[in-house]
């Protein structure tokens, strides 16, 4: 069911089908310290262009910190992040997004006073180019771009069957719909790499199953890479091709789902050390 993983020059593994394409993401020796605390250390991670990777680990292992490093919310103390082969050092958060990384949040951060459609359109901001003047005078350029944005927003919303909710305020959506909208808003920025921070948090088993289908569907439709943080092991083991396990900011294991499940270091990190009898 899972593709064979093959090594790439940085000694990481990616799915065989992506081997002839450039890596979408490559982190080399990534690390950050907060005061005396080494939150992430020596992280090497590579992702193929259509790979779904899981980032797992106990609470406080540094998973969200990795997301914040990748999106330049935090500036790494050591290491390099290459996005499509381009070093993102010196870019700010908005620039990194325009270069192709989009994310969702563990605690939902939608613009709750904006409508569903407006939330999606905020994601398209960087792709719209009309200036202040043409928006005030309502020149044809304004109408053309706004119409295209409207159509694309509805198209994206219909992936998750949310097109009929376009005019509803995001804050009044039920929880599951808010989570879906966050993913759509992230997709609206045209990413090459989508970061999902605990997408299944608070979902019941049937919603989680639907989410799994949707994550695969997004990868297949948009041909993008997806890196996800998740505590639901059923979801992780079902859809991730590569898994990276963090504990205390360090990578303790990497591999396919079956390799990770059998890895003693992972079992120890999650369940504690086995007592010697």
């Amino acid at each position: 069911m899972f593709p064979k993983l093959v090594p790439v020059p940085s000694k990481n593994m990616i799915p065989e089908r992506d081997i002839d394409k450039p890596l979408v993401l490559e982190c080399i020796n990534l690390g950050i310290t907060f005061g005396g605390l080494q939150a992430v250390e020596n992280l090497d991670l590579a992702m193929g262009q259509t790979e779904i990777t899981g980032l797992i680990g106990p609470n406080g292992a540094g998973k969200t910190t990795v997301f914040n490093l990748l999106t330049k919310v935090y500036q790494p103390t050591t290491g390099t992040i290459l996005l499509n082969g381009k070093d993102i050092q010196g870019m700010d958060t908005a620039h990194v997004n325009r270069e192709g990384i989009a994310r969702t949040f563990q605690n939902i951060r939608l613009f709750s006073d904006l409508t569903v459609e407006e939330n999606v359109k905020v994601g398209m901001d960087a792709q719209m180019h009309y200036n202040m003047l043409s928006s005030l005078l309502r020149l044809p350029g304004y109408w053309k771009e706004e119409k295209a944005a409207h159509e694309r927003a509805l198209e994206l919303l219909s992936i998750f069957n949310m097109a009929d909710l376009a005019g509803v305020k995001a804050g009044s959506l039920p929880y599951g719909a808010q989570r879906r909208l966050e993913i759509i808003r992230a997709l609206a920025t045209n990413p090459r790499l989508l970061l999902l921070d605990e997408p299944a948090a608070g979902m019941n088993p049937s919603e989680t199953a639907e989410l799994m289908e949707n994550i695969r569907k997004i990868r297949d439709t948009f041909q993008i890479a997806i890196l996800l943080i998740e505590h639901d092991m059923n979801l992780v083991m079902n859809i991730c091709e590569g898994i990276c396990v963090l504990n205390f900011g360090r990578v303790i294991a990497k591999g396919t789902p079956s390799e990770i499940q059998a890895n003693p270091a992972v079992i120890e990190a999650y369940l504690g050390k086995k007592k010697e009898a």
Binding site: T71, V73, D92, T93, A94, N97, R98, A102, R103, F105, R109, L110, F111, S112, D113, L114, V122, G123, D125, A126, R185, A186, A188, T189
Partner: peptide
């Protein structure tokens, strides 16, 4: 509403 989230969506 949320400058951080706006920035992560590519807003300057």
């Amino acid at each position: 509403e949320d400058k951080g989230a706006a920035q992560l969506m590519g807003i300057n």
